[in-house]
């Protein structure tokens, strides 16, 4: 274990590199969650499409993602993508993470869509609206709103999962910590430091999510 003074000294001297890495981690997470939301919405809609084959496709996607380790998915997609087309490492990593997050987000959306009272669909239909229009204008806005807190949680999970992008040479937080650690023959210090960065980020995000939830609860109509 490093001494306190050594730890704080290293924490201070490495902050430039870690802060850059932190921004990369945040960017990677944000992009992968946003794309994951698009994937998730798409597959959630397939799931409720009432077209058997599309439901199977959606089920298969969720099954594959949930049934395999993220690191395996990242490697397959990374080598798959870079084998097929030239794509910057950042986007390979972001897409791999998005593919992964998308499955969990699809489940979030499926759940919140199904949690909207059946009477809403019936009211829409009884006014002459089609099923599609009712889903788009009545069901989805309510489902989105309910999805916000779990999406916030998925963001936090996604943030920590993004550390696996280190294995495809993204210079995000975890990669920086292991690189600095082995260069300086001081792995433990840098691992403790990176843990602090993650903790602070997660704490801030948790606070943001809960503030957001409170705000939603207040304006909940």
């Amino acid at each position: 274990m490093p001494s306190f003074s050594h730890f704080f000294h290293t924490l201070n001297s490495s902050k430039g590199l870690f802060i850059d890495a932190m921004f990369l981690t945040l960017k990677l997470t944000l992009v992968s969650i946003l794309i994951g939301i698009i994937f998730g919405l798409f597959f959630a809609l397939l799931k409720i499409s009432r077209v058997k084959i599309l439901e199977y496709v959606s089920n298969a996607y969720v099954f594959l993602v949930r049934g395999t380790p993220l690191i395996v998915q990242i490697f397959i997609l990374y080598f798959g993508f870079s084998g097929l087309f030239l794509i910057p490492d950042f986007w390979a990593a972001a897409l791999a993470l998005a593919f992964h997050n998308g499955a969990y987000i699809a489940e979030i959306f499926r759940g919140t869509i199904q949690s909207v009272d059946k009477g809403q669909m019936e009211a829409g239909r009884s006014l002459g609206m089609t099923r599609g229009v009712t889903i788009r204008r009545i069901i989805l806005p309510q489902a989105f709103r309910r999805a916000l807190p779990p999406l916030g949680n998925q963001f936090i999970i996604g943030l920590k999962d993004s550390s696996l992008a280190a294995f495809i040479s993204m210079n995000e937080l975890f990669n920086v910590s292991t690189t600095l650690g082995s260069n300086n023959f001081d792995e433990m210090t840098y691992l403790l430091i990176v843990a602090i960065y993650y903790l602070v980020l997660v704490a801030l995000l948790t606070m943001a999510v809960s503030m957001f939830e409170k705000k939603l609860a207040v304006s909940d109509r």
Partner: peptide, 30 residues
């Protein structure tokens, strides 16, 4: 269904829309 309207036991108003928006939803969209 536009000619046969329905009023439900549990109202089934659209909670994310104001009273006015609830009423103009179908006339504007349909």
């Amino acid at each position: 269904r536009q000619t046969v309207g329905m009023v439900f036991q549990h109202f089934n108003l659209f909670p994310h829309k104001t009273v006015l928006e609830n009423i103009i939803e179908a006339p504007t969209v349909v």
